[in-house]
Amino acid sequence: MKPISRRSFLERSGTGMAAAAAIPALEAPTFQSRPLPAEERGREIHLKVNGKDHRLEVEDHWTLAEVLRDHLGLTGTRVGCDRGECGACTVLLDGKSLYSCSYLAVWAEGKEISTVEGLAEGTQLDPLQEAFIEHDGPQCGFCTSGQLMSAKALLNSNPNPTEAEARQALAGNICRCSNFNRYLEAVLATSGKGGSRG
């Protein structure tokens, strides 16, 4: 098997991005916080997401996942079960991993939230993201954002985890393609390089 150099995979990743950009966009999504109709009683909250402040009108029973996806357009946070079983919706709340499908948006008032969209800084990927590509983490990719955020929370608190610690930290993130070992390789490779940024 030919080893993959960092350089060649970055070039290829760039190709992927160019290809995607070259594909004409489908219907442009309309993501804006809209005033709620009369039948939906709202309440105003403030959220800080990926360093950006948002003022939103939400209903009490809306989940954080729902608000991120449907009202802030941050669809990188996936909903796989909507009942706290699969981990696809994992985000960071004040630096700790959280199932955003099982947390009400109103509870997040004043808290700092990080989603997968906030991992990269400009065009610079987080080392975890680079390692996920290099080690072929995503198969279908639906659980990937959650795996990344759980891994990020782990490396934030424990920059050099053992294999057992990493498995434990990711235990709440199911991958039905069952690419668990690839994800683990990627996390351990990142920690071995001196840990993740931030």
Binding site: F9, G16, M17, A20, T75, E117, L119, I133, D136, L148
Partner: peptide, 11 residues
């Protein structure tokens, strides 16, 4: 590596 890896890891 997958040609769409970037899209998959950035959400």
């Amino acid at each position: 590596p997958r040609i769409d890896g970037l899209q998959r890891v950035t959400g």
